[in-house]
Design a protein around this nucleic acid. Structure first.
Lengths: 129, 129
DNA sequence: GTTGACTCTATACTAAATATAGACTTTACA
DNA sequence: TGTAAAGTCTATATTTAGTATAGAGTCAAC
């Protein structure tokens, strides 16, 4: 199949597929006589793996590490488990940051709930501090 | 004062100050004979306002809008209040997304808590799906 | 007069795509 | 068979909010 079909089946845009290839995340495939990329079912599987990882917000570098680990079936999988665990810690941390931000924003919002003039705006006054 | 002093007093790096100036977020100041930027107390106040806004994760464009509004003291402040409100909605939404991601990651993590071989790794098996 | 600290501009880099230009290939249809 | 449309190619620019660097110029102290 050509890149347009792979794009539809995988849900990744054509540009994204080419981008992953350039990043060495997605193996360069065979080319047709007219230099078109030709993919098969295994390409689709590989791309879906990448997409799954990206949906977990893993970075391209992290996905490369996972792929590298996958190529050594007899080695320990602890690096995989650590990566997921660390990622969960990071997400938890980010949530806490955003919760704090949300609190600040909510305090700020309640400093000016009605429609005043700019020079009397409670929000702007808080921002000056 | 010169840019190094402003940087220390504001907590913004020298490059960041120059960057804000280039983005028209921070007014271009006077220059010394040797072409050094010369700032005063009002520069520091302006920079602190920007920093406060950035700490709320407002974008540079949004901060520009706020500054623009500030320059019209007699107009309505409703755009300011709307901006903060919308930002809070966005943050709330992002938190929900991250909470869902955290759940997925936690399910994933529990698929392989011990140290196995790569080919038996529960996390990798989930990622294949 | 020279050393060292400071500042200047311009440029490249980060992440993960997305968008575009301009050229080439393939397919469909008259 | 000719041509128009659709698909694909590479290379480059753009996005965000800075950070990092090179190479040059300025200033203060000794």
């Amino acid at each position: 199949m050509k890149i347009g079909e792979l794009s539809k089946k995988s849900g990744c845009s054509i540009q994204t597929i080419r981008f992953y290839e350039k990043q060495d995340l997605f193996e360069a495939c065979n080319r047709s006589e007219g230099n078109y990329r030709i993919y098969d079912a295994s390409s689709l599987r590989a791309l879906r793996f990448i997409k799954q990882c990206r949906s977990l917000d893993l970075t391209i570098i992290e996905i490369k590490q996972l792929l590298d680990t996958k190529n050594n079936p007899d080695k320990s999988c602890s690096s995989v488990n650590n990566l997921i665990h660390q990622h969960m810690v990071d997400v938890t941390h980010r949530i806490a940051e955003l919760e704090e931000l949300k609190l600040t924003l909510s305090e700020m919002a309640s400093a000016c709930t009605d429609d005043r003039k700019v020079k009397e705006c409670g929000v702007l006054q808080l921002l000056e501090k």
